[in-house]
């Protein structure tokens, strides 16, 4: 019903369409793609959309295009982070305060001294697997990023990929005003 509250004037058919698309979105959420997790978990923030990482204000994130890690090692790195670097851990139970250590034999007491960064979002085990599958299937071993890679990531609507088309003149967006 929230949908209807904001739709000030729609045809009955449109209401049906919105309700149907809402159902589709819910289904997508339960099977969130590895790429969507890559975006939501802000892997982009350091490894960039293309996974090639590189230098910058955040220090150098490793290149996932050139990585030699296999899926289990990628999953472990996402779960546990890399102590002493900017790579944070993405699983809430990676460093328990009691019980058996899950990562590198460390507990929550070691986080500060070992400089283990915590991610801003936590992922479930199946989400960690999905994002590792995405890295293996779409990023690892690929050469320089190209237009097709870029469009697959950003879609057609952003100008983010225009640089791969040789740049050029961009249509200006249409601003909107609310009063």
């Amino acid at each position: 019903m929230m949908v209807m509250k904001f739709c000030v004037t729609v045809s009955a058919a449109a209401v049906v369409a919105i309700l149907v698309s809402g159902t589709v979105n819910a289904a997508e959420n339960s099977l969130e793609s590895g790429q969507a997790i890559y975006k939501r978990a802000n892997c982009v923030g350091c490894h960039k959309w293309h996974g090639d990482g590189g230098g910058g204000y955040g220090g150098a994130a490793l290149s996932l295009r050139k990585t030699e890690l296999e899926k289990p090692q990628i999953m472990e790195t996402v779960k546990c982070g890399r102590p002493g670097t900017g790579m944070p851990y993405f699983s809430h139970d990676s460093y328990p305060s009691d019980g058996a250590p899950q990562c590198y034999g460390l507990t929550s007491n070691d986080l500060e001294t070992m400089h283990v960064a915590q991610a801003s979002v936590f992922l479930r085990p199946e989400e960690i697997e999905a994002v590792a599958d995405y890295v293996i299937g779409n990023i690892k071993g690929k050469g320089d990023p190209n237009l097709a890679d870029c469009v697959a990531f950003f879609g057609d609507e952003s100008k983010a990929c225009d640089v791969y088309k040789g740049g050029g003149h961009h249509a200006l967006p249409t601003p909107t005003t609310t009063q």
Partner: peptide, 20 residues
């Protein structure tokens, strides 16, 4: 608030190359 003008900035185009 009298009005708000939203320029519809392209988030990915700009946000991917904003250093700071």
């Amino acid at each position: 608030l009298l009005w708000k003008m939203d320029p519809k900035t392209d988030h990915d185009w700009a946000g991917a190359v904003a250093c700071c």
